[in-house]
Structure formats: structure tokens, C-alpha cells
Amino acid sequence: MRFMLIVKASPQSEAGVMPSEKLLTDMGNYNEELAKAGVLLAGEGLHPSAKGARVIFSAAGRSVVDGPFADTKSLVAGFWLIKVKSKEEAIEWVKRCPNPMEGEAEIEIRQVFETEDFGAALTPDLKLQEERLRRQADAGR
């Protein structure tokens, strides 16, 4: 099972406050633990929403809204993608994580859909396409 661990933004991360050397060291050590355990697939921090944009989809088309975005609690400051056996194992990994904000912080745990989760809607042709795209993405790493 794959899980995305979503680090929620804070007023400090949205203000562009960079992590301390200690936090970078602690996070590096945590990432090394994830990698050594064979569960780490990806993980990155994100720039503040002021440097981002949103594309809004509607019946009339698409529009672009530049950041910053107001509701800090709904914003993402970083993420990990891990592969573990269960949600409980993902929770245990998150509990071991250094506090990502050096203050109050929140990490949301969300399971990633796998191809078999889509049932009959994922036709054999669509499944082949998905497999081909995953191989291409893996080759690009």
C-alpha cells in the first residue's frame, strides 16, 4: 500500500521561513531511516503558496489564480510518498517524524489509489496504458 504523508503548511512556512540546521539534520536522519527500511518512494518540501498558482476548472473553461492562498490549514508545505503494509504502519512512521514546523504541525496520511481499486472502470486498455506510463516515469528517475 502506498500512502502520501502530507505536511500541512503553517504561517511560518507560508512566510518562507526556512527550517533550522537542526531540523534539516533531523529530517535527513528520518529520511535515511525511511530509505533504509525500504519504504521511502519520494519526499520533498514545497515553496510557499505565494510562488504557486491554481487552475480552476468550470463548465466555462479554466482560469488561473496566482498565490498566495489564504487558508493556511488547507495548504501543503511538503510530502512523503511511502510504501508500507498498512495504514497503521504509516501512522507509526509519522509518529517517528521530527516535528516539521518547529512549533504546532500536522501531517495528514492518505492512501494512494492502486490500479486494482478502480475495478471494471479500468479497462484492459487503460490498465496497459497506466503500466506503460509508470514504466516511463520510473525510467525517467
Score class of each variant (00 low, 15 high):
M27P: 10
M27V: 06
G28A: 09
N29M: 12
N29L: 13
N29S: 14
N29Y: 11
Y30P: 08
Y30D: 02
E32V: 03
L34V: 06
A35H: 15
A35G: 15
A35E: 15
A35W: 15
K36S: 02
K36E: 02
K36I: 00
K36C: 00
A37T: 09
A37W: 10
G38R: 04
V39S: 03
V39W: 05
V39F: 04
L40R: 10
L40F: 13
L40A: 10
L40C: 07
L41F: 14
L41V: 13
L41H: 14
A42Y: 07
A42D: 13
E44S: 13
E44C: 11
G45S: 02
K51G: 15
A53D: 00
V55M: 01
V55S: 00
I56A: 02
F57Q: 02
F57D: 00
A59Q: 11
A60Y: 14
G61F: 11
R62Y: 09
V64S: 00
P68N: 03
F69S: 05
F69A: 03
A70N: 07
A70G: 09
A70Q: 11
A70K: 11
D71S: 12
T72A: 01
T72M: 00
S74Q: 14
L75Y: 11
V76P: 09
A77C: 09
A77T: 07
G78Y: 06
L81M: 11
I82M: 05
K83D: 10
V84M: 07
K85D: 07
K85E: 09
S86W: 12
S86M: 05
S86H: 08
E89W: 13
E89G: 04
A90N: 08
I91Q: 09
E92V: 00
V94D: 01
K95L: 08
R96A: 04
R96L: 04
C97N: 05
C97E: 00
C97P: 05
C97R: 01
P98L: 00
M101N: 15
M101P: 13
G103P: 14
E104D: 15
E104K: 15
E106T: 08
I107K: 01
I107Y: 04
E108Y: 12
E108A: 10
V112Y: 13
V112R: 11
E114H: 15
E114D: 15
E114W: 15
T115W: 12
D117F: 12
D117E: 04
G119Q: 03
G119S: 02
G119K: 02
A120G: 05
A120D: 13
A120L: 10
